[in-house]
Structures are given as C-alpha cells and as structure tokens.
Amino acid sequence: MSPAEQNAVRQSARNGWLLSVPALVVLALAASGPLLIVVYYSFLTANDTGGVIRQFSLEGWRGIFLTYDIFDEEYRLADAHLTIFWRSVWLSLTTTLVTFAVGFPTAWFIATRPAQQRAMWLFLITIPFWTNLLIRTFAINEVIRNEGILNTALIWLGVIDRPLQIVYTETAVLIGMAYVYLPLMVLPLYATIERFDMRLLEASYDLYASRWRTLRRVILPIVKPGIIAGSILVFVPSLGAYVTPRVLGGGKKMMIGNFIELQFLQGKNWPLGAALSVTLLIIVMGALLIYVRVANRDRSSDHG
C-alpha cells in the first residue's frame, strides 16, 4: 500500500469514529454507561427491603444456575430459570419469523406503490402505534377473547362451533408480539426494497427464471441488509418483552423480562436480577456478533 493510500485508510477510519462519537457519548451517558452499575450490583449482597448492601457476594451469580431449595436445604439446578429462558427464546424466534412472513410482502407492497403514495402507506403502518402499548394490548385482547370479534366471526362463518381459547396462551403472546413488533420489521425492509432496481426482475424473468427462483436468487440477497436489521429489531427486544406476556399471557407464563422485573421489585433480590441481566446481555451480544459476521461473510461471498 502506498503512503497515500495508507493515509486515506487512516483518514477514513478517523472519520468513521468522529461521525460515531456523538451517538456513543449519548449512549454512554444514558444507556450503556449506567449499566456498569448493574454489573457492579451483581456482585453485592441483596437487601431484603430493596436495593443492595455494599458487601461482596457471589450469591447473585450462583442464583442463576443453582437455586437453594429452601425446603430440602440444598442447592439444585435452577430448572425454572431454564424453562423461562427457553420459552423466551422460542417465542422471540417465532415472532421474528411471523413478522418476516407478514412484513416482507407488506414492505414489498408499499415499496411498489407509486412514489407519492409510499409515505402514506408507511404512515398507515405506524399510525396504530400512536396509541399506547398498554391500551393497544388490551384492544388485541378484546379481539381474540372468547366472545371477541375473531371468535364470533369464525363461529358465524361456521369454521368452528366453540370459541377458541386463545387468550392466556402462548399463542396469544405470539399474536400480541407479532402485532407490536411488525413495524420494526416492515420499516427497515422497506428502506432496502425501495432501493431495489426493478429492472433486475425484468432481467431475471427474461432469462426464464421462475418467480420463486427470482425471489430467492435476486430479491432476497439484495434486500438482505434490511432483513438483518429487521430481525435484530424484532428478535432482541422481544426477548425482554414485558407488557405483552403480562397482559395476553395472563401472567401464568413468565418471560425473561418479567422474571428479571420480579427480582428487582417484588422479590427484592437485586443482585440476582443484575446477574440475570448481565447474562442475557452477554448471550445476546454474542449471538448478534455471530449473526452479523455470518451475514456479512455471505454477502461478500455473493459479490465476490
């Protein structure tokens, strides 16, 4: 590399940092930085009346894997934690798939409207979200409950003869989360599809590719950045979802978000709550890194 090129690379890296610094500063002050407090708290002793006692302890960390069975007076594997964790991962993955299955056609539809209409369709996607999450979740409950619109309509159509018990099941949580997170999938997808050059389709069809093949071989690779962004925006927040499982799941089936909240509030075990949070953070961060690496490698090999 010539000195001039080296200079250009260095310059580019410096600009990259400079442009990112303002966002990083805000995040350090009002998000990531304060999280260090949580890391610190995970090594302290729980205070029965809330908060922590400033005395070193590993109880919080041990509590993740082992629960002290106060009845048998012995430590055993915390299988309740595993159940809750597994349910969260499973529901979040399914939510991501469902939002993609619905969101991709929707984003495609919006992106293929005449240019001056697109903004309107985009707004139509976000308008329902102007109503607050709590009240919206209650409205969903209103639709899917036993005497709700959905069941009434299905019975009237003769599809079923008894109402489906949807409310207070994992299906209800899934429906609710897919509803809540749909725009998080549609908007990033739209942002990349909108850029898609439709002449590529023409070329593909001219070469006698089927629609399915075109979709797989031409469209999906190009809109991949949008798919990555959308899946992250849906999957990661749904792991920590709180309101939806609480309202639609009927509170009988916790997700990680609810479980961590229990430790910080009613359970008054801040160190355990903190240790659980740090564990979740590490797992998600790791998964995200792997996901991005793999996705980027695929992309460069596609082009290379």
Binding site: G16, A23, L27, Y242, E261, S277, V284, L288
Partner: peptide, 28 residues
C-alpha cells in the same frame, strides 16, 4: 468504508440498548 479498528465495537455499543430488558436500563 474500509473496515476499521473498533467498527464492530461501535456497532455493538449502538445496539446495546436493544439487548437488555427495559427494566434493567431503568434501574441503572
């Protein structure tokens, strides 16, 4: 731009608020 040192770090830091349940950030 050409991949530079710390790029992944920036990426992870920017997405960090997504990674913990809200109640954790809230307590912090």
């Amino acid at each position: 731009r050409k991949a530079f040192k710390g790029q992944t770090f920036i990426y992870v830091m920017i997405n960090q608020p997504l990674m913990v349940p809200e109640v954790v950030t809230a307590v912090a």
